[in-house]
Amino acid sequence: MKTEPTNQYMFLVRGPCKQGYSPEQMQAHMIEVYAWIDSLTKQGIFSAAQPLTPEGKVVSGGNGISVTDGVFAESKEAVGGFFILNVQTMDEAVKIACDSPMVKRGGQLEVRHIAELKRE
């Protein structure tokens, strides 16, 4: 079996901490994201997206299994959600990320090419 790159990319959404936002700012940001997803959908680029709740657990192996409460909303490392988009190249995916409202407001998008397992 080998992996082959697909025509899909995943965006992992991180930060920033939006604690200082006023209700008006939050609403404005939500509408921006709507419009952005709308335009991606019209171009056939949008495939899927899900938010992730801040609460979570971290299960680690190694010397015995440990389960800890993990991933708190304040952490910059916490992934808030993901998007799956249909694009051809990494450059294209990066350009879309640059234009996203999340990045424009100081957040971070990790851009990863989705690989597919193919049987030989």
Binding site: Y21, P23, Q27, M30, Q50, P51, P54, G81
Partner: peptide, 14 residues
């Protein structure tokens, strides 16, 4: 405030 933040997060997607 926290609930509104979560609404922003979750409702943006769906």
């Amino acid at each position: 405030q926290e609930a509104l933040l979560r609404a922003l997060q979750t409702w943006s997607y769906h």
